[in-house]
Write a protein that binds this DNA or RNA. Structure first.
Length: 582
RNA sequence: CGGGGCGUGGCUCAGCCUGGUAGAGCGCACGGUUCGGGACCGUGAGGUCGGAGGUUCGAAUCCUCUCGCCCCGACCA
């Protein structure tokens, strides 16, 4: 392409609306423009980059037997009603009605459509396994779109679905996808890690998230540098050093604590206890099976509760802290004086059924201090398993950096931010059951198809690449995603020898199969250099004064170094570099 | 949805507090001088000051409502 009439609207200054690096640079480099909140247009450079990503996705999906489909983005409500998600999903789904007043929606994912195809067409185990995928637009009415392309309402996704006769088949399909994903992100030049994640409302038994480490990410990742353990904070656990407790008292003992409202208060109160020797007691209202139920959550005094973990542990669709009035009604005290001892009796007296759930770090603890369910009073000498009727134990606390790795000895956990760039799920039979997709097995039994689903966001890959690969001058694309392999910069268009050399190299490089951008604009060299750095083309051939000696410069965007190369050698050099680079 | 911020030529912003009829830099067009890291000089085009209503002799400026965008939080198949 010739830059002089190619549309690359670069910006000299950071746009006011952009906060994160990738957003600023993608706008400044003329890759994207915003249409509305969370809605972006890909400009010619952006489309070239997206096409390169999609090509990689296709190649790796095809390599594991994937078959490319193209499904509609407009769906009838009917199939979503069948799967149960028409009601399960809230405002995040774009819903509309057609002229006949039939409910429709814009697809936010395609389990339903693919399952609908499978149930109509697949009858026998002999037709399995199937690996189906598409690269297509998705619509999600995000509560808060943000950070440029990182969280948007309309985006391109590669989504794949596998169909197997049994669990073992799914395990293999899942591993195939997992390996393909590793190759994809590696080819895209993104540093990533795979973390255990909560499946959430997607359903299914197991899911892995692919995360790109970047401060612009929205998730917190816990990882162990020693053994490679990695998990989303909502799923992560840690190993805590055991706390030696003295035997304490033969029975718990109540004592007055006037004015003590918080864990901190009790630490400094004479006769109080340090935070790690206190039991923090929180009342939550959890919706379980559609009914709100009070739950008393017990945590170590210096630990924080992770609400998602609480919800997962309870099998609850929603949890919220109880209001002060609800707490008083239930336990007869204010939030600063609650405890597990005698709590069930108090609740029963108030005609309520209280469930007690405790963080596993409290297991076996003795001589603890906690609230007495009586304002301005606490209880000491509590031996939790002796004195409190805990219904169940779970990992509920927020893991913090510096804690011990749960998988290996001696590993120390780090916590950092990451961006989700891919997510793979073992769905099992959630959709095949609800939508009736079955096959006959070899022995003539009708069984639900076992499914998996696997997604990668194209714009997320682009954002992650920019987040991880940039410097103060602009983007540094990996060769695999770069909109052009090389830019030929003619430093002065008024000099015929420079122009002719540039033109010749341009056509020679294109003939060699490279994507070439010829900067033939009537601009000063400095402007061209700045723009080339900004848009991040991996190599630049600078056509300057040394042409008289038969030499041009080859500039490496990433290394920011240039070397003189004979004009006769430069095509071979760039070709070799482009093949080798990523 | 809760909290905060911002809407003024294409872009980045000033002007608003204290009302008097709109400015700068960049970009753009033309002419000239320049020509290897975002040149310089001159001339010029370009703005219903997000929108509606109100107060006032007079509103970018004050008041009310509304729309949009950004950030934090909640949420996130």
């Amino acid at each position: 392409m010739r830059w002089s009439n190619y549309f690359i609207p670069t910006l000299r200054e950071d746009p006011a609306d952009a906060e994160v690096i990738s957003h600023k640079l993608l706008l400044r480099a003329g890759v994207i423009r915003q249409l509305s909140a969370g809605i972006y247009s890909l400009l010619p450079l952006g489309q070239r980059i997206a096409l390169k990503v999609m090509q990689i996705l296709r190649e790796e999906m095809n390599a594991i037997g994937g078959q490319e489909f193209y499904l509609p983005a407009l769906h009838p409500a009917e199939i979503w009603q069948e799967s149960g998600r028409w009601d399960a999903i809230g405002d995040e789904m774009f819903r509309l009605k057609d002229r006949k007043n039939t409910d429709m929606c814009l697809g936010m994912t395609h389990e339903e459509v693919f399952t609908a195809i499978a149930r109509n067409e697949i009858r026998s185990y002999k037709q399995l396994p199937q690996v189906w995928y598409q690269i297509q637009i998705k619509f999600r009415d995000e509560a808060r779109p943000k950070s440029g392309l990182i969280r948007v309402r309309s985006f391109i996704m590669k989504d794949a679905y596998t169909f197997d006769v049994d669990r073992a088949g799914l395990d293999k399909s899942f591993m195939d996808q997992r390996e393909a994903y590793k190759k994809i992100f590696t080819r895209c030049g993104i540093k990533f890690l795979i973390v255990e994640a909560s499946s959430g409302a997607m359903g299914g038994s197991e899911s892995d998230e692919f995360m790109a480490r970047t401060p612009a990410g929205e998730d917190l990742i816990v990882s162990c540098p020693s053994c490679g353990y990695a998990a989303n904070l909502e799923k992560a656990t840690s190993r805590l050093t055991a706390m030696p407790d003295e035997a304490g008292l033969p029975a718990p003992e109540e004592f007055p604590t006037p004015g003590v409202r918080t864990i901190e208060d009790l630490v400094t109160f004479p006769g109080g206890a340090e935070a790690s020797r206190q039991i923090k007691s929180l009342v939550y209202i959890a919706t379980i099976g559609g009914d709100p139920r009070p739950v008393l959550v017990l945590m170590r005094g210096d630990h924080q509760l992770h609400e998602t973990k609480l919800g997962d542990a309870l099998g609850s669709t929603a949890v919220r802290p109880a209001h002060p009035e609800e707490i008083r009604e239930l336990l007869g005290a204010s939030a600063g004086s609650l405890g597990g001892v005698g709590a069930k009796d108090k609740a029963r007296a108030a005609k309520m059924d209280l469930r007690i759930i405790a963080d596993s770090s409290l297991k076996g603890r003795r001589n603890m201090t906690t609230g007495a369910n009586k304002d301005d009073h606490h209880i000491r000498g509590v031996e939790i398993e002796r004195d409190i009727p805990v219904d169940s134990w779970h990992e509920l606390r927020i893991v913090e950096s510096g804690e011990g790795c749960p998988r290996c000895d001696g590993g120390v956990l780090e916590v950092f931010k990451g961006m989700e760039i891919g997510h793979i799920f073992k769905l099992g039979t959630k959709y095949s059951d609800s939508m009736g997709a079955t096959v006959l097995t070899q022995d003539g039994k009708q069984v639900p198809i076992v499914m998996g689903s696997y997604g990668i966001g194209v714009e997320r890959i682009i954002s992650a690449a920019v987040e991880q690969r940039h410097d103060e001058d602009g983007i540094i694309w990996p060769q695999s995603l770069a909109p052009f392999d090389v830019v030929v910069t003619i430093t002065n268009m008024k000099q015929d020898d420079l122009r002719q050399t540039g033109e010749k190299l341009y056509s020679d490089l294109e003939r060699a199969g490279l994507d070439v951008l010829l900067d033939d604009r009537d601009e000063r060299a400095g402007v061209k250099f700045k723009d080339a750095d900004l848009i991040g083309i991996p190599y630049r051939i600078t056509i300057g004064k040394k042409v008289a000696e038969g030499v041009v410069e080859l500039y490496d965007r990433r290394a920011k170094q240039s070397e003189d190369v004979k004009i006769t050698d430069v095509v071979d050099r760039v070709q070799a570099l482009a093949l080798a680079g990523s």
